[in-house]
Simulated scan of single mutants.
Amino acid sequence: MSKKKIVITGGPGTGKSSIIHNLEAQGNECLHEISRQVTLEAQKEGIAQLFLEKPLLFSEKLLEGRIRQHYEAEEKTIEPIFIDRGIPDVIAYMDYFETRYTSKFTEACERHSYHQVFILPPWKEIYKSDNERYETFEEALAISKFLNETYKRFGYQPVEVPKGPVEERANFILNNLDD
């Protein structure tokens, strides 16, 4: 039987990591976003911005990492397992940036499913850019649409999390889990 994997997704700067940390502090099992880790590993190898310099390689590394997380979730003893971004996020970003990719990306989405998806809407008041997040807020709005469409394309019905304090948003997710 597959473990109950819950994806928390949304465009850049929507509060995903803060919610994941809150859920974790409440004793929930959580897996964190890996894109910053992929970026930092590439920087150690001398590639300043892997996403900008080699977007397909960046996406391949993200895909590998998210598939690993999927299997890691299967080893967890506490359910549900909350995951900061899922495999379809990789495709949504590649579609947004018009990056060509092979069928291995769509096949990974079809092979590795999630129980439920929560999407955080763009929120200008909390949006901040930094060294790893270089999208403008307008780009974040567009990426959010791509994420929503991509998850729907793979058969999910993303539940939009209302804006509000982190704890309220985390509790909304906990109170709206499917059986």
Rank of each mutant, 00 (worst) to 15 (best):
S2R: 13
S2G: 10
K3G: 12
K4N: 04
K5R: 09
P12H: 03
T14E: 00
S17V: 11
S17T: 14
S18H: 03
H21Y: 08
H21K: 12
A25E: 13
E29W: 11
C30V: 12
L31W: 07
E33H: 12
S35D: 11
R36N: 09
V38W: 03
V38A: 09
T39Q: 04
L40G: 13
Q43C: 09
K44W: 03
Q49A: 04
Q49P: 01
Q49R: 05
Q49F: 07
L52G: 07
E53Y: 11
E53H: 09
E53S: 13
P55L: 13
P55C: 11
S59P: 06
K61Y: 10
K61I: 08
L63C: 13
G65D: 07
R68E: 13
R68M: 15
H70L: 15
H70N: 12
H70C: 14
Y71T: 14
E72W: 12
E72T: 15
A73M: 09
A73I: 07
E74C: 09
E74N: 09
K76C: 14
T77D: 13
I81K: 05
I83P: 05
G86S: 07
G86Q: 02
I87N: 02
I87Q: 04
I87H: 05
V90Q: 01
I91H: 05
A92L: 05
Y93H: 01
Y96G: 01
F97E: 10
F97Q: 08
T102Q: 06
S103K: 07
S103P: 00
K104G: 02
K104V: 09
K104R: 09
F105A: 05
T106N: 08
E107K: 12
R111Q: 08
Y114W: 15
Y114F: 13
Q116P: 11
Q116I: 12
F118P: 04
L120I: 12
P121Q: 11
P122S: 11
W123G: 01
K124N: 13
K124M: 10
E125Y: 07
E125M: 10
I126R: 04
I126C: 09
K128E: 10
Y134L: 14
E135I: 09
T136L: 08
T136F: 10
T136W: 08
F137T: 12
E138D: 07
E138H: 02
E139M: 06
L141Y: 07
L141V: 12
A142Y: 14
A142L: 15
I143D: 03
F146Y: 13
R153Q: 06
F154S: 03
Y156N: 05
P158K: 03
V161L: 00
V161K: 00
P162H: 01
V166A: 00
V166L: 00
E167D: 01
N171L: 00
I173Q: 01
I173H: 02
I173Y: 01
I173S: 01
L174G: 00
D178Y: 13
